[in-house]
């Protein structure tokens, strides 16, 4: 059976908020490394991978591998009943029909209990190759969100160019064009505000802003975001959590 308790329900709430517009139904795979999910969006150009490691939970018990087939809209409805700082316990039998969620308020003796019906989801498991990227850029997640939102007002796609000096986001649309450059800067006092560029070689790729804006819903998970780019391979966008991550992969647009 599975029994996994999160100190803060907010963690799962944020994860579900971050991915629910990309993926409707998916398996939460529970095993001795924690809870993971991996799913492609309907159009098969983006992939989300999430891992909540066992340290994220206390206690964490999972006797055998269990796939919890969950409709994310349903899970979100139930999670709305949890306060952000409630203790959240997930429980399931070995061959479950339902996932049991218990929300316990830290401040009073309120205990709320919900069951979500599970579904059989026949999901393809994909191997994500270890990739040496041409450029890896770590920047404030709020800044990345702002840039994507601002440029999306002008255009459907953005060109991202990473060089030693900085990272440039630019777009062209019917009403005009726009560009935002972040220079490499190491903020010693506030490291989360730094823009750090690790460069093997300069790289420039174009992506759909619709997807990037969607991925930015994960911004509440982490103050920083890491973008990894290489020619002709999917962009990797990682939001690191204390004990896990949410990663998005997006295929570059062709013809540039």
């Amino acid at each position: 059976m599975l029994e996994a308790r999160l100190e803060q329900a907010a963690v799962l709430k944020k994860v579900v908020d971050a991915i629910k517009d990309l993926v409707q139904d998916c398996n939460f795979d529970c095993n001795d490394s924690g809870i993971q999910l991996q799913a492609m969006d309907n159009s098969h150009v983006a992939l989300v991978a999430m891992h909540l490691k066992t340290d994220a939970f206390s206690p964490y018990r999972c006797d055998r591998n269990i796939a919890l087939g969950i409709n994310l809209a349903s899970l979100q409805k139930v999670l709305r009943a949890a306060q952000n700082d409630d203790l959240l316990t997930l429980k399931a039998e070995d061959a479950p029909d339902v996932l049991n969620l218990v929300f316990e308020s830290a401040e009073n003796d309120r205990i709320a209990e919900y069951d979500i019906k599970l579904m059989d989801i026949d999901q393809e498991h994909l191997g994500i190759p270890d990739t040496e990227y041409a450029a890896t850029v770590t920047m404030p997640s709020s800044e990345f969100q702002r840039i994507c939102r601002d440029l999306n007002a002008l255009s459907e796609s953005v060109s991202i160019e990473a060089a030693k000096e900085g990272i440039k986001f630019s777009c062209q649309g019917d009403i005009g064009s726009g560009a935002v450059t972040l220079r490499q800067n190491n903020n010693v006092e506030k490291p989360d505000l730094s823009t750090i560029i690790e460069l093997n070689e300069p790289v420039g790729l174009t992506f759909s802003l619709k997807y990037l804006v969607n991925f930015c819903k994960a911004s509440s998970l982490s103050n920083t975001v890491k973008l990894s780019l290489s020619a002709e391979v999917p962009l990797l966008i990682e939001y690191k959590m204390e004990s896990g991550y949410v990663r998005f992969y997006l295929a570059p647009k062709i013809g540039d």
């Binding site: 992939l47 393809e124 994909l126 994500i128 190759p129």
Partner: peptide, 14 residues
């Protein structure tokens, strides 16, 4: 589309 095909190429089915 070819974009989908490239994603499939990158992420190998296990």
């Amino acid at each position: 589309t070819s974009t989908q095909a490239r994603m499939q190429d990158f992420f190998k089915a296990i």
